[in-house]
Amino acid sequence: MAAGVEMREEAPRVARLHAILWGIFSLGGMLAAFLLPVMIYLTGIAYPLGLWPLNGSRDPSFLVMGTLLGVLFVFVTVAGSLFHGIFRFQSALTEVGLLRLKKGLEAAGYLIIFAGIILLAYYLLVLNPSLPAL
C-alpha cells in the first residue's frame, strides 16, 4: 500500500432512510416498467381504437370506477411512477453538476412526491364519482 496514506477514518453512518427511499424508488421503477405500459395501452390505444379488452362499449374509466382492484391499480401505477420519476430526475440533476443544490432538490422532490400521492389518493377515494364500497 502507498506510503503516507492517512488511515484515520470517521465512524461510518449507515444512510438507513435513504436506503428505504431507494428501495421504494426501485420498486416504483419496476411498477412503472410493468404497469404503466398496461395503463397507456388501455387508455391511450385500446379505448380509442376499440381494441381488446375495451372493444364494445367499455370505457377505461372503469379502472377507477366500481372496483377496489381498479383503484389500487391506478394508485400503485401513478404513485410508483411519480416516486420513481422524481427520484430519477433528482439523480439526473446531480449528474449535470447541480450537486451543491442537492439537499434543496431532494426536499423539493420529496414535497412533489408527497403532494402528488396525497392528491392522487384524494381523487381516487374522495372525488372518484363512483367510489367502490369499502
Binding site: A15, L17, A19, I20, W22, G23, S26
Partner: peptide, 10 residues
C-alpha cells in the same frame, strides 16, 4: 450492494 442496504434497512 444497494439492494442489500435496502433490505437490511427494512
Amino acid at each position: 450492494t444497494k439492494i442489500l442496504g435496502a433490505t437490511n434497512a427494512l
